[in-house]
Nucleic acid binder design. Structure first.
Length: 341
DNA sequence: GGCATTTGACCTAT
DNA sequence: ATAGGTCAAATGCC
């Protein structure tokens, strides 16, 4: 497969995702020698695509922010920053007219729901001359947050990319004010009830899900979920690099010699990945003490073939099906409300 | 029962 | 009149 030098990151990632699903389908059955060769070719191509993605990500990280949104509050907007540097989407600068209408940014992305915020759908409309309906979402982090987004699936056939997963044009309207509103609420809550912790207050406002009954994910992963609605940009970046590395690592065969139990793969600082000789893979993420890995050590609910798997067992351990990584990794950044991707 | 989603009706701009 | 955007009752899921 020749690499198109003009290819965009979403296309490369989409291609990788498509390849991984094909590889999954292949690995669902016992493989003979030729099957193994095909699987190896797939995995090598997958590795190459993710290497390309990582180099694209690294080059994007040095780029300037995409849009001056005229945020007069002086408060940073984490998820917007994430979009600029870490999502797989292509950021499009909105026109002057669009900005006057409150449009803060536009982007083309294969994963329109993974931008670090939690959204509530409030409308759907069939648009003239469009094959697909347009979907309307409001920010669900805070009731009074004015941020909205429109998601319009693009016609793949018009792009001549019938084999790739769908891509979406996402238009963001109005700045998020949820972090400011939440901070105000937290301050008010402290005045009313000094015994209420910030974390729990945040969680109640975000309507976040409880996990396993013993605690919630905001308590378990405060440094990942962060104090605001979106995660911190640097950790987003780390997470992406870790995820890509993990997928690449998973596609590579274990060495013929060395520690029979596991071998350690090259990782970004603060992360480690090990692959046992039975193929089980575990990744330790920074100093969380939690690990990501397949069902060899964590009971999970089975889902239909080919779909990403993300579950939390009753002990609070995270489980992830590595094959579904590209689509699943962002699920953790939804304002504390962890949900299946 | 609470919550998110769906969907037809309604509103507004052109 | 038409299209795009929003509302809110109905519905389904957990």
């Amino acid at each position: 497969m020749a690499f198109d030098p003009d290819a965009k990151l979403p296309d490369v990632l989409a291609g990788g995702y498509h390849l991984s699903t094909q590889l999954q389908a292949l690995l669902r059955h016992p493989l003979d020698r030729s099957g193994q060769e095909v699987a190896m070719a797939f995995s090598q191509e997958l590795s190459r695509l993710f290497e390309i993605s990582m180099s694209m990500l690294n080059s994007n990280n040095t780029a300037a922010p995409e849009v001056n949104t005229g945020n007069s509050t002086g408060v940073s907007t984490p998820a917007k920053d994430q979009r600029a540097r870490s999502d797989s989407g292509e950021v499009v600068t909105p026109s002057k007219k669009s900005r006057e209408e409150g449009v803060t940014s536009k982007e083309i992305t294969p994963s329109p729901h993974k931008d670090g915020y939690q959204w509530r759908k409030y409308g759907q409309k069939k648009i003239q001359n469009c094959k697909f309906s347009r979907y309307y979402y409001k920010c669900n982090c805070h009731r009074r947050c004015l941020a909205k987004k429109k998601v319009q699936q693009q016609d793949a056939s018009s792009r001549g990319q019938l084999m790739l997963p769908p891509v979406f044009e996402v238009t963001y309207v109005n700045e998020h004010t949820c972090h400011v509103l939440r901070a105000n609420d937290a301050a008010a809550a402290r005045m009313v009830s000094p015994g209420t912790t910030n974390n729990r207050r945040h969680h109640a406002l975000a309507g976040a899900a409880r996990v396993g009954g013993d605690g919630d994910l905001f308590d378990l992963f405060p440094h990942i979920i962060g104090g605001g609605c979106g995660g911190r940009a640097e950790e987003e970046k780390d997470a992406i690099v870790s995820c890509l590395t993990t997928v690449i690592s998973g596609a590579a065969p274990p060495p013929a010699t060395g520690d029979p139990a596991a071998f350690v793969l090259p990782q970004p600082a603060g992360h480690s990945v090990s692959v046992a000789d039975d193929g089980a893979m575990m990744m330790m993420v920074k100093d969380t003490g939690f690990s990501w890995g397949p069902s060899s050590f964590c009971p999970v609910v089975e889902e239909e073939a080919g779909h990403a798997e993300l579950a939390v067992n009753r002990h609070g351990d995270l489980h992830m099906d590595v094959a579904g990584f590209a689509d699943t990794v962002w699920a953790q950044h939804t304002c504390g409300a962890w949900r299946r991707a």
